[in-house]
Design a protein around this nucleic acid. Structure first.
Lengths: 242, 242
DNA sequence: CAGTGGTCTAGACCACGGG
DNA sequence: CCGTGGTCTAGACCACTGG
């Protein structure tokens, strides 16, 4: 263990230690600065910084520089509220969500089945991107029947949280009924929405929320979540164990 | 979309298409061959092959070459059997597990608590590595009380599957009671066991199995699973939804 | 031994973002 | 405009694998 394969491995270790204590968004030395400091060429310095990015310790932005980044914990477990906004706020982050599209359309067959309504029922197709500390972190499509919140577009201009809108306007209590999650290299469609490069690891999460009172399906979502922005933790259990 | 940032992006697309149909383990062109074929230098060819590795389409082994690789699906859901071997065999893979350590020791406090026995109770600390198609895929520690299978070391020399041993020797019916899973850059400890490089994305899965009849805790595990070897899919749900 | 991937240097041009 | 990261070339040495 701890084999040295070259100078850059040592640089990675030194920089990773130094970064450990810094707040999120702090500027990190540029490739040229790292090269001068450790007496290596640009390629070695670049390899070291690239390794830090692969380990999700920094983000590198062309034209801007390299910055420390934190991963926010996002616990998904039965019985927990399905709200992205609230979950992240409780974790100390400042989530922002922007609406990219909010179209009233007939629900496609598979969505209608999941929402337990007749195919072709009017609904909303919502495409949104969520940011954490100004960085894109999640992107995806959400579907819901139109009769739940007929004035959804107007409501979204006032309140970002779909969970809150459903509670206060539709008078329902959304609960996580079903979720499927995995990690995939982001396809181009997703990396565009996430502002990352194709192939970067990302969570693909599909879920269905039901009304706590009555059990009516409320919301069907399929979202991509950047793995370098959110540490998704999934918990399956009978509740007896910590 | 589909912006061209350089020759290597095009090479990636071409090679990814060609690889898509090949069986797992097929040899892929070397860096030199790719460079000659596409008329680029070794750096560009290397970048393209590295990108394919990042996308989990190939494995690259120093001194050997580059080979296609498949990811095996591993569905984790409530009610599903917790057996690694059986789950993967059903997925069409040939799992092998080697025992790295099997020590009879007093169970440490946290494990004893999880297994609901008195601290210091005699138990087995099992360290194992699992392979899929001869490639290391999982590694980790498993704990169980010694009275369940007093002859565990001998039993493991005959039967690889801990699930089978528990069923046939201890007469219990292991069921997944609790699981926590996330994805982390593999720390050095884990990357050694997994035969990958530190920082490669890997699943960290902790779980507890209970006896289906009686509910006694049987097995507490903490395993690392290579994300490029296994496509872990987690499902939380009430069973009403597909 | 030859061939593979892993690392590095030196130098170049480009794309991007901010002043 | 300058500095940033992204890409590329040409060339070198090394570590590892198999025959």
């Amino acid at each position: 263990m701890s084999r040295e394969t070259g100078p850059s491995a040592q640089i990675v270790r030194v920089l990773a230690d130094e970064l450990a204590g810094l707040p999120s968004g702090t500027r990190v030395a540029s490739e040229a600065e790292v090269g001068q400091r450790f007496g290596v060429g640009r390629a070695a310095a670049r390899a070291a910084l690239g390794e830090l990015e692969r380990r999700m310790l920094v983000s590198r932005i062309q034209g801007l520089g390299t910055f420390t980044r934190r991963r926010v914990d996002y616990l998904v477990a039965p019985g927990r509220a399905p709200s992205w906004s609230r979950t992240l706020r409780e974790a100390g982050a400042s989530p922002r969500t922007v609406v990219l599209a909010c179209d009233a359309v007939p629900l496609p067959a598979d969505v209608a089945t999941a929402l337990e309504v007749a195919p072709g029922t009017r609904g909303f197709r919502l495409v949104r991107r969520s940011h954490i500390d100004q960085m894109p972190a999640a992107w995806g499509v959400e579907w819901l029947a139109a009769d739940l919140v007929p004035e959804l577009p107007a409501a979204l201009r006032v309140e970002e949280s779909l969970d809150t809108i459903l509670r206060e306007t539709a008078g329902v209590r959304p609960e996580r009924a079903w979720t499927r999650a995995s990690v995939e290299p982001a396809p181009e469609e997703a990396s565009d929405g996430l502002g990352c490069r194709p192939g970067d690891p990302a969570w693909l999460m599909a879920s269905l929320a039901r009304d706590g009172a009555g059990g009516r399906p409320l919301l069907s979502t399929e979202r991509w979540v950047r793995a370098d922005a959110v540490r998704v933790v999934l918990e399956l259990g009978d509740g007896r164990d910590a």
